[in-house]
Design a protein around this nucleic acid. Sequence first.
DNA 1: TAAGTATATTAGCATATGCTTATGAAGTTC
DNA 2: GAACTTCATAAGCATATGCTAATATACTTA
Lengths: 132, 132
Amino acid sequence: MDSKKLENIFGALSSSLRLRMTLLMVKRPFCVCELENIFDVSQPAISQNLKILKAANLIGEKREKQWVFYSTNKELLSSAFGEFLELLEKEDAFIEIVGLKISDLPHDPQKSCEILQRKKEVLKSDLLQGGN
Amino acid sequence: MDSKKLENIFGALSSSLRLRMTLLMVKRPFCVCELENIFDVSQPAISQNLKILKAANLIGEKREKQWVFYSTNKELLSSAFGEFLELLEKEDAFIEIVGLKISDLPHDPQKSCEILQRKKEVLKSDLLQGGN
DNA sequence: TAAGTATATTAGCATATGCTTATGAAGTTC
DNA sequence: GAACTTCATAAGCATATGCTAATATACTTA
């Protein structure tokens, strides 16, 4: 579970529609035509949002006759949140994320900013950035 | 913790920059000028993203001399995720979210869709929608 | 109080998102 | 295999998002 996967999960759950769909599909599998009527958006909108949830691995699908049933992957949610909370505790997460050791930076913001500015000029910015 | 608050939290964590900022500020408080140099975006971009994190209550701020120090509200994250997982288990979450009892819907998608379509025509859509 | 520093806000712009309508593809049923 | 149903994809458009540059505000210090 890298941070890109977490980003996708959080992004998938950041819309009201997808959050409600996720909370619904945890109860039992639903097909697209049911979801379309429950949430009062067009069928393509449902499909598109299911695609986003699926890309985040938050739902699974199962074809049955002419229907496709989608259901929430509850285990993934639990484990993702758990791993995120672990990441918060992890002492060296700082290094992985910004390429710095926490001990490199004094608490005094004046000194800290000087160090960072120098570092910024030396290092290429792509070492620090991971896109958006 | 209603679903709107969860939405804000997930939205706040759905960008790479804000996710990394959150993981960083859990280690110790940081001021804007430090963050600006760490993440190689402009100072206004940092302030704007801090504002989003703060609106989701994910960070707290503490003024000290001319600096404003921001730090991650770790407890909120734990409790938010916990409450979301509880919501997934909650039997009647379905009712709150879509205004229907799960027992109203047969598993047979053909019958289920018919019921939903009738319900859709009867009920105003604003009972089912919560915006995006 | 003037100058300097840190942060916030505004305006503007490029890109992303999220819907709708139209269409395509795949499976079902008669 | 033709009509029907279900779902996915594409095109188009309006709005949201996220940055930068410019400016304002607030605090600090001499």
